[in-house]
Each structure stands twice: as C-alpha cells, then as structure tokens.
Amino acid sequence: MNPYELISEFYAPGSEPHRIMIRHGEQVAKKALDVARRLGCGAPDLKFIEEAALLHDIGIFLTRARKIGCTGTCPYVCHGYLGRELLERKGLFRHALVCERHVGVGITPDDIVGQALPLPLRDMRPVTLEEEIIAYADKFYSKGGDAAEKPVTEILRGLERFGPDKAAVFRAWIRRFEGKDALTEPSPGS
C-alpha cells in the first residue's frame, strides 16, 4: 500500500488540499517516527506509524473547511470517522482506526452526547501505542497557515477549552513520549 497513491485517489494532485494533506501528513509522520524510535526496546510498528500518520486526515475533503480548501458537507469534527469509513472500504482496518481515534486526544461517548457532536456514539479514543503516538504528534501541526511546530503551551491551551481531562491526557503523553513535564518546556526561542 502506497499512502501517497491513496491520498491522490481522493485529492487532486497539485490542488491545495492535496498539498496540505501531504505536508501535514509528512510533518506528523516525522514527529511520530521520532517519538517511536526514542521509545527503544519494544518500539512500535514504524512502517505502520508512517503510513497511518500520512493517512490520518484522509477524510478532511468531506468536511466544510474552506480555509484549507475542503468543500464537503460535514462539520470538520467528522473527518476522523469519515476517514475511517474511507479506509475500511479499502480494507485498511488498522489504519482506519487511527483516522477515527486521532481527533483531539480522543473523543468519548460522553463528549459526543455532552457536546451534541454529529458523530456515531462510540468511543473514539486512541487504544494502541501507535494510535497514541500519531494523535500526540498530530497536535503539534496545523493544516492551515504556518507550518511551524506548535509549542506545548499552545497545544495545552487549545485542549483545555474542551476540559482539564483533555489537557491531562496530553500531559501524560508528554511525560511518556518525551520524558519531561509539560510545564517545564522552555519557551519558544530560548
């Protein structure tokens, strides 16, 4: 399976959404692979991480995200489960789960009900180490605008809008994947 060929099935090569998918996917893949390699003994499946990181946002074209050139009909929050459906039709069941489970730090059934999200009512939190690594790496990069890596403080501020439990998950990932506390991160440029 070639992730780039699969992306080109859904995104016109040379289009803005195609360019964004490739750039963002490569950024997430690089960060995820760096994290996975640092874990050392018992490291996760690197080939799968690279492929799944490149494909994790495959469903964005089906959403209304005009800033990144997506003119679909669904709200952006739906891109994860829509990507899952696309990849399941291709027989990529393991990759499909990454699509669904990478949004935020994962979406719970309580989140879906409590926020009246237009999502199937099921647990959409990362389960495997590979899923967690990709969800973690994804938080560092936006699809639109600046392609620079976001500082941890900015990521945490964004997650805290959805509740302290979301920021707590990310803090735990920082400790697990980086071996440091989120609050001791140096400020950008230091």
Rank of each mutant, 00 (worst) to 15 (best):
M1A: 14
M1Q: 12
N2A: 10
Y4T: 12
L6D: 04
S8Q: 15
F10E: 05
F10H: 09
Y11P: 01
S15K: 02
H18N: 09
I22F: 02
R23K: 12
Q27A: 01
V28D: 03
L33G: 06
R37M: 08
R37E: 07
L39E: 14
P44H: 04
L46E: 05
F48V: 12
A52T: 08
A53K: 03
A53M: 02
A53C: 09
H56K: 12
D57N: 06
I58W: 03
F61D: 09
T63S: 06
A65T: 01
K67Q: 11
K67Y: 12
C70V: 04
T71V: 13
T71F: 15
V77R: 06
V77G: 10
G80I: 01
E88S: 14
R89N: 13
G91I: 07
L92V: 03
L92F: 09
R94N: 10
R94Y: 08
H95N: 13
A96L: 03
E100G: 14
H102N: 11
G104D: 08
T108F: 01
D110N: 12
P118L: 11
P120F: 08
D123R: 00
R125Q: 07
P126A: 00
I133S: 05
Y141R: 06
A148S: 15
E149A: 07
K150C: 04
P151G: 12
P151T: 11
T153D: 12
R157W: 03
L159Y: 01
F162D: 00
G163A: 03
P164H: 14
K166G: 04
A168G: 05
I174Y: 04
R176L: 09
R176Y: 09
L183D: 15
E185G: 10
P186Q: 07
S190Y: 12
